[in-house]
Write a protein that binds this DNA or RNA. Structure first.
Length: 232
DNA sequence: GCGACAG
DNA sequence: ATCTTGTCGC
């Protein structure tokens, strides 16, 4: 792989990213979350996409894809490592979401093409980048208050938001992926919060990808009588 | 040259 | 990201 060629490709591709609200999702019906993980020491890349109804935010479908890893992790080039698996999971979906939250950055990237933007372009859907750590840019220290927000700035440009979604938790880095404005990106993430650090679509994608207990319970509830599964 | 560096 | 137990705090 030629990193310099990929860098040039990113610069050209970034010019195609749409940073405003291109479609009207006043009343989205389905919002999805996408997450990627690795198995066998990184040999296998596993992508999970979870579809949630909106505004009830209930899991209605999920798809998982496992493929051989094609590239190592290189900061700034994450999308080339993750998009093949994401595309495989995407193609398994029986219906498509109106909006997709991708783990990682959108335009808050050195060349403005994080995985959320790159994948959004590939599938031509509105996407939002929801990252847990900073990749580039600077921001003022955040007050401890939940809801505290600061602009993420890079080279004089506001490339995203640093937002404390929950008290005593590290902030989230939210940015435009594709076909969504910066303000809408933050707005929709906020609409999908249910008391945890991560928005529900992202949380479910993570739960599915990592087979967490919350997802296992959901699976059991599917082929059993829901009424007999009153946990807690 | 040195440090930073999504997942 | 992943490998992993106990543990600190709400």
């Amino acid at each position: 792989m030629d990193i310099n060629a990929l860098r040039e490709k990113q610069i050209l591709t970034a010019a195609e990213v749409i940073r405003h609200d291109d479609v009207d999702f006043t009343q989205p019906e389905i919002i999805a979350g996408a997450d990627v993980g690795f198995e066998q020491g990184g040999e296998i890349t596993r992508a999970a996409i979870a579809l949630l109804s909106y505004p009830s935010l209930e899991l209605i479908e999920y798809q998982v894809a496992r493929i051989n890893t094609t590239m190592p992790y290189i900061p700034g080039f994450l999308s080339f490592r993750e998009y093949p698996a994401l595309l495989a999971a995407w193609e398994k979906l029986t219906r498509l979401p109106d909006l997709l939250f991708v783990d990682g950055h959108g335009i808050s990237h050195p060349r403005r093409l994080g995985v959320a933007s790159h994948f959004g372009l590939l599938v031509d859907r509105p996407t939002i980048g929801v990252a847990k750590r900073r990749l580039c840019g600077r921001f003022e220290p955040l007050p401890p208050d939940p809801g505290a927000k600061a602009p993420l700035m890079d080279k004089g440009e506001n490339i995203g938001w640093v937002w404390r979604s929950k008290l005593r938790c590290n902030p989230l880095f939210i940015s435009t992926g594709h076909r969504v404005s910066m303000d809408s990106a933050l707005y929709w993430v906020q609409q999908c919060m249910r008391g945890y650090r991560l928005p529900e679509p992202t949380r479910w994608a993570d739960a599915v990808a990592s087979n967490r207990t919350i997802f296992q319970r959901w699976q059991q509830g599917r082929d059993s009588e829901p009424d007999f599964f009153v946990l807690r």
